[in-house]
Design a protein around this nucleic acid. Structure first.
Lengths: 239, 239
DNA sequence: CTACTCATGTAACACGTTACATGATTTC
DNA sequence: GAAATCATGTAACGTGTTACATGAGTAG
């Protein structure tokens, strides 16, 4: 759970009302982490009960009273502990669209293209939004917060590239039907893959990466001369 | 909910036991969609109760009986309806690590670097896995399934690039403290951004994209001569 | 002798969304 | 006069994880 910790993080810079926290999530953090009312208010209550935050109620005659929350020593400790803990889990992308792509074999080329174009439209729109908000924030936020904005833009760009490549693929007729999607062979291969993940000894390729990393070289750089390169997956991305 | 639909999708190609479905999720689909036992078995039961799938129990003396499920007409209808429905929602990335990055201002440079390096290690390892499984599957899966593998690799590559840029940034001392992370200004800007998202009229930039798209040009291509380009966000990605 | 595979499940919990409720004030 | 803003919340539901239970067979 990271909602509690992010609330604590906000309160580190000074007291805030529940409504202000809600607004901040809705209008700023929402780019990468959303919270609903039905989750936020009960969570604040629970955190108060656990002495992570203290509460001061400000009377308002016209409307509901304001609840001003401040971080407690206990809360600050918990936040700092969380912030320093290394993240050791790779977060999988769980996207309904990708699940549909898995089954695209079962659709006609026209239907697939319709799907891909509508995704492209959606992403183009989102990219536009991400770019304008990034521009508006320029100079007002920390360098790290700026990098989060960059990640958003970059991610959407890459997705569009990916979708475009699928469109190309269909147009060029590179799709042949393969029969059943499920084969025992696939499961077997997956098992091998799993073993490698959970065995603690890293593979050779991983060790090469590590050496590069430690020598200070850019880890993802491709050293082949531009002209000789196989078309890179991320070619042609613009800023 | 997409778990039910993906189960139906698997059963389209023939009957499977609960255990086989579980294995398939665990060893193949898990790359982009995971399911726990505690979710799968009850879901199969519910789907059977709703007549989406039919059940045949195969007696086994030595151990628990096998439950062989087949898709029903109703189930097939529901799957096909789902598969054809356009995806209109942009799935936000909800990642604990990004949330931490938001608060990196509150850590020392050394602590930030430690975080970033451990993330890089993790991603290098995952990249390795993604690449090997992609290679193993080559020739055995549909072109679309192959593209899912490519997306995974591409995504991890981009993340590593992003993390490397943050490391660079810290080393070059491009990080200045900005005081409070929360400002009313940010909320105001966010509100404007929101309006643009929900107003149905697309912006000029979005329309430019759309024109490019409809004229068949690659939408994300950057036409500036290579030498004059500002270093692109995704420069140096390898296959 | 330990641990894993096959094969199914349950119960408790954690996380998150949606819809609703209140009620005055301000803006279109 | 309708709708949004300010300001708080509850109840019902849906999704998903973790830990546990059973019990035989097999591989190291």
């Amino acid at each position: 759970m990271a909602l509690r910790e992010s609330i604590l993080g906000l309160l580190c810079d000074g007291p805030m009302t529940g409504y202000e926290i809600k607004q901040f999530f809705r209008n700023v953090i929402r780019n990468f982490w959303s919270v609903s009312d039905g989750q936020l208010y009960p969570t604040l209550k629970k955190m108060h009960a656990e002495d992570l935050i203290s509460l001061r109620v400000v009377r308002q005659d016209s409307t509901a009273n304001k609840h001003v929350y401040s971080i407690s020593e206990k809360g600050r400790g918990q936040f700092e502990k969380w912030l320093r803990e290394p993240v050791t889990k790779f977060e999988e992308l769980k996207e309904p669209f990708v699940l549909k792509v898995f089954f695209f074999d079962k659709l006609s080329h026209e239907e697939v293209i319709r799907h891909l174009r509508s995704q492209l439209d959606l992403h183009a729109r989102i990219l536009d939004e991400f770019r304008s908000i990034r521009d508006s924030y320029k100079g007002r936020i920390t360098a790290f917060q700026g990098m989060i904005g960059d990640m958003g833009v970059l991610y959407v760009e890459v997705r569009m590239l990916w979708i475009n490549r699928m469109i190309d693929m269909v147009h060029k007729g590179l799709i042949e039907k393969k029969g059943a999607l499920y084969t025992e062979e696939m499961v077997e291969i997956g098992k091998k893959f799993l073993e490698e993940i959970f065995s603690e000894k890293p593979s050779q390729e991983f060790q090469k990466w590590l050496r590069k990393l430690q020598s200070g070289l850019p880890v993802v750089a491709d050293k082949r001369p531009r002209s000789k390169q196989v078309r890179s997956m991320a070619d042609g991305l613009s800023r």
